[in-house]
Computed example of a mutant assay.
Amino acid sequence: MIVCVCRRVSDREIARHARAGLSFDEIQFELGVATQCGRCESCARDVVAQCSSTHPIAAVHNAAVPQTIQLASSITESKAWTSSLHSQAA
Rank of each mutant, 00 (worst) to 15 (best):
M1C: 08
I2C: 04
C4G: 03
C4A: 08
V5H: 08
C6K: 11
R8V: 13
R8F: 13
R8A: 12
S10W: 02
S10A: 06
I14W: 01
A15N: 01
R16D: 07
R16T: 03
R16K: 14
A20G: 15
G21H: 00
L22I: 02
L22M: 12
F24W: 02
D25E: 15
E26G: 10
E26D: 14
I27S: 02
Q28D: 06
Q28K: 13
F29L: 04
F29M: 06
E30Q: 08
E30S: 04
E30D: 09
L31E: 00
V33S: 06
V33W: 05
T35R: 11
Q36R: 13
C37M: 05
C37Q: 13
G38Q: 05
R39G: 01
R39I: 07
S42H: 03
S42R: 11
S42F: 02
C43V: 10
C43K: 03
A44I: 06
A44D: 05
V47E: 00
V48C: 06
A49N: 08
A49W: 10
A49R: 07
A49G: 11
C51M: 05
C51E: 03
S52E: 02
S52M: 02
S53F: 00
S53V: 03
S53A: 04
T54V: 01
H55A: 00
H55E: 04
P56F: 02
P56N: 06
P56S: 01
I57L: 12
I57V: 14
A58R: 05
A58F: 10
A58Q: 04
V60H: 04
V60T: 11
H61W: 10
N62M: 05
T68A: 08
Q70Y: 09
A72P: 01
S73L: 10
S73W: 04
E77R: 15
S78K: 14
S78C: 14
K79R: 14
S83R: 13
S83V: 09
S83Y: 05
L85E: 12
L85F: 05
H86C: 09
S87V: 15
A89M: 15
A89F: 15
